[in-house]
Design a binder for these strands. Structure first.
Lengths: 251, 251
DNA sequence: CGCGTGCTTGATGATGCTCAATACCTGTGG
DNA sequence: CCACAGGTATTGAGCATCATCAAGCACGCG
């Protein structure tokens, strides 16, 4: 049994979608693949998303080089995706939370180009590729949704590139936290209190910083009264102040 | 009249696709939207790509905030895409050359999120969104291709994030040049002699560096005998050496 | 309790940004 | 034809930021 304080902060198993259900029953309907689709279209989508799969913390859902056999939607839990250069250098390219799609980047070549690692015990919906290719009716709506999902990824990547290219360490971290808070809020959690599911090292890799710099930035924010840090528990005390930091006020 | 040396180096108007032709006649067939499709499918795709549009150098094809009315495929010329944060900070997020798609990132919301600026007099094929939405038969193949194109963008973005997050200035520039040379080679040009269509500032923005640092890196490469620089003419003398630089040999 | 992993904090140095001056290329107008 | 202006590129000097190396601390787990 685990003794986390789950009263204030989001825990690993909330929201808790029903197991074995189709999309129509899923709490994440509005944020996931069927976002914006009319109710009648749901069963068609749901037919493609028949199975779920559990991924224990630390295990890979797929890794770079694997053949693309299915796309995935995160149901519960938290993932990171990592690219690896040939020389072994790696970098986290994104964090995925419930409602996010995984595997889209493999559509280009049919092989995955990133590792997808569960940061905690997670569940994913499996969108098998075989029926997907033949789904004539549902395919249309589905492909549109996939495109939308990929577009979202592209736009998020662009935002990250903006971070990486032009911002200082603290600006990057502030932007990261605000983005994370906003995404969590969209999922129904508090926008002010968050539990980081990833290590400082992951965050640093994502933001192009070392873990020490991330840690220092956290400490600096706390000293400024912008937030409160206790390990992975973060309380955003002054989101507006963080926005000022992102805008370059902290130079 | 212009007096560029166009004997060695690719010029703005090569390759020269036929105007007014469908995809079946286009020289870029193999690199563009129809990549990998069988010949019979070409007319269906071509039907969606009926019009072309000229974009003079420096002019925007679309800008952030514009409603998405069409997707575009670069036919001739060269583009850059720029994001802009609310505080006015901007960054180049990509460079597009013949065969590349433009506008995909707008699929998420229906509004463009980046500016697309022609770096030289260019032509694009217009993929109007209205018929696209109704194209039942062709739609399937087309959407698959769009997905593939977007996936390509995502993967390229990831590579750039890897650059931005983990590489030194020279490593970034070397990687950028090798990538550019490879993309140009795929289009049938020399992989060793290239003419940059963008300014040092653009490159710097793309790579998360200042224009001065880019310039210094060029000079350093030249001093090492890795390449020859004359303004925007670059001759790669030692691609293998550049690859060593990317791998971190220049530290 | 003791170990390991992850986090914090400090000191030092290199990388690359800022500011600034100069040179170059192109197109314009005298 | 030449001078000039504007944008672009190169180069230099000083300094801020962040990576690196190193040491200790907190937490969770066996």
């Amino acid at each position: 049994m685990q003794f986390h304080d789950t009263s204030l902060l989001p825990s690993a198993d909330t929201p808790r979608p029903r197991p074995q259900s189709g999309c129509a029953d899923c709490r994440l309907r509005a944020q996931c693949l069927p976002a914006g689709l009319p109710a009648p279209a749901l069963p068609a989508i749901g037919a493609l998303v028949s199975t779920q799969r559990a991924v224990p913390r630390g295990q890979r859902l797929f890794q770079a080089g694997d053949a693309l056999t299915a796309l995935y939607a995160v149901r519960t839990g938290f993932f990171k995706t990592c690219t690896a250069a040939e020389d072994g250098r790696t970098q986290v390219t994104g964090f995925q939370m419930p409602g996010d799609l995984l595997g889209l980047a493999a559509l280009e070549t049919g092989r995955h180009t990133v590792d997808a690692v569960a940061l905690e015990d997670s569940q994913v919906c499996v969108i098998s590729c075989a029926p997907l290719a033949q789904a004539s009716e549902a395919g249309h709506a589905l492909q549109r949704q996939l495109l939308r999902g990929m577009s979202r990824i592209v736009n998020r990547d662009h935002a990250v590139m903006l971070l990486l290219g032009g911002m200082r360490a603290r600006e990057r971290l502030a932007a990261f936290l605000l983005d994370l808070a906003q995404r969590l809020q969209a999922l129904g959690w508090s926008g002010a209190a968050l539990v980081l599911r990833m290590t400082r090292e992951d965050i640093g890799s994502y933001l192009g910083l070392t873990l020490e710099t991330v840690s220092r930035a956290f400490s600096a924010f706390q000293a400024q009264g912008l937030l409160e840090v206790r390990q992975r528990e973060i309380h955003l005390l002054d989101p507006q102040g963080l926005r000022r930091v992102v805008a370059g006020a902290g130079r």
